[in-house]
Computed example of a mutant assay.
Amino acid sequence: MCPPNCGASTSAGRPPSPSATASTPRRGFGPTGPAAAGPDTIRGQFAADSLEKAIAEGRLIDNLIHSSDSTEVVPRDFGIWYGPAKKHLLRAPHTVNGDPR
């Protein structure tokens, strides 16, 4: 399941492979802890928090971007970010020959 327009990215006019779909964006986001993210990642360029600081202050990390680490946790993550009132927006991804599109 995924929010609207997920899996819609393409590469040179072709949909990416399922493994590339998950790994390529996550590499570009950088590690969950922004302080550990390189300058060539979204978190490294724009985030100002650290996992250590958040833990020390007993709070969630101020993270700039989120990506679920597996399709199984998407419904839970979606519920955290958007709440139960938006559950109707969550849908299964389109597939062509078994590949998400």
Rank of each mutant, 00 (worst) to 15 (best):
L64T: 09
V74G: 03
G13R: 09
D40S: 11
E72L: 12
S70N: 11
S11L: 15
S70D: 07
D99H: 10
P100K: 06
A85P: 02
D99R: 13
F78N: 03
A8K: 12
V74F: 05
P93G: 07
P100F: 04
R43T: 01
K86R: 15
P34A: 05
G79Q: 10
D40A: 12
A12G: 10
Y82Q: 10
H88K: 13
P31C: 06
H88R: 12
V74Y: 01
K53A: 14
L90R: 04
S19I: 13
I61T: 05
G79L: 09
T95L: 14
G38I: 03
P3C: 09
S9N: 14
G33S: 15
Y82A: 11
L64G: 01
H94C: 10
R76V: 09
P84M: 12
A92G: 09
K53L: 08
T10G: 04
K53T: 08
I61Q: 03
A56E: 08
K86Q: 15
P75W: 04
F46M: 09
L51W: 00
S23Q: 15
A48R: 15
D49C: 02
A36K: 07
T41P: 05
G98W: 07
N97M: 10
A54I: 00
H94L: 15
K53C: 01
M1Q: 07
I42G: 01
E72V: 06
A35D: 10
P31V: 01
C2R: 07
Y82P: 05
T32C: 11
P75R: 05
G79A: 11
C6W: 05
T24Q: 14
H94I: 13
D69V: 00
V74L: 04
G13C: 08
K86G: 01
N63E: 11
P3H: 06
T41M: 05
L64D: 01
A12S: 13
